[in-house]
Design a protein around this nucleic acid. Structure first.
Lengths: 157, 157
DNA sequence: TTCGGGACGTTCGAATTTGAACTAGGGTCG
DNA sequence: CGACCCTAGTTCAAATTCGAACGTCCCGAA
């Protein structure tokens, strides 16, 4: 009644600590060998796979699941480092695009192998193919519902 | 070769954003109706299910996947609120136990239904039973390996 | 056209987190 | 003993995050 069943609890706890530990490891490795935080890496990665290598602040903040103000802060850092630049939209003055620079793309490319290696070693390599699919589909659906029905889909801050 | 396959990417992205969104929602709901942050809730919950309702700082920091110094900080907050107290171990002067107070147990009990409801609504209720099991077992194993083989098992700070 | 409601990003202060010292004991081996 | 290294927890400054304004600007209705 009150609490969660053992399996429910295990699933949620595993989700929580898995993410925490993975994030921790990635952050350390990324910082060590390319000077990027995990969040910064994710930001650059999103930009890299976007058309024109650019995204609006709001889309980006949603994509990396971060607050608006937090994203502004990180973009400022990446700007200082020359890895992105800002572009305002002629059509809508309010809109701001973050654009990946060539230097940003380079840095990302250099960081990628280590990052991918870690994901493979720690996550993908440990799951069976069925588990991998279940995670992708199940959690994917969990996400979709939260983004739709939530008042938070757009950005978190 | 270089990058992750589509499914690998979907799984990892889903894991990341699912956790981020769930955390966000929980944090807001918990703060709103019981004045606890998500992390504080987790800390109290661990203590509540520990023998004697107490745990050493290191165990606790490992259990909630947080850094040592971060845990000290949060325990200080919970101390101010009267929800936990500290106890030093007679045998080993270095050891410090965080102990759940009655008031802490009350607060936790009041927060629990909402928390459990959210886990059910947003996570458990969306997954099929097979997916739930796959998440519990798969990610559980991912965890175990990271804690064993890692230099991070003990605490993150 | 002119409001009024939203949406978009930024700013700012406060809260939190991080990571590197640092304090202080244990435990072992000589 | 005594030199040494290891563990536990705290402290402190710096970095980051949060959330609530704020300033602008689009857009649809009157």
């Amino acid at each position: 009644m009150g609490g969660l069943s053992t399996e429910e609890q295990r699933a949620w706890t595993a989700l929580r600590t898995t993410y925490a530990l993975l994030h921790q490891r990635m952050d350390q490795q990324l910082k060590r060998d390319s000077g990027l935080s995990h969040l910064q890496y994710e930001i650059l990665a999103r930009l890299a796979s976007a058309p024109e290598r650019e995204l609006r602040m709001a889309e980006l903040s949603c994509a990396v699941a971060n607050s608006k103000s937090g994203l502004t802060y990180q973009i400022d850092r990446l700007l200082e480092a020359g890895l992105v630049c800002r572009r305002t939209c002629p059509g809508d003055v309010r809109a701001v695009y973050a654009v990946l620079t060539d230097e940003g793309a380079d840095r990302l490319a250099r960081a990628e192998p280590g990052y991918v290696g870690l994901v493979r070693e720690l996550l993908v390599g440990v799951l069976t193919p069925e588990q991998l699919r279940a995670v992708a589909e199940g959690l994917g659906e969990v996400n979709r519902r939260m983004q739709d029905s939530g008042d938070f889909g757009e950005s978190l801050g």
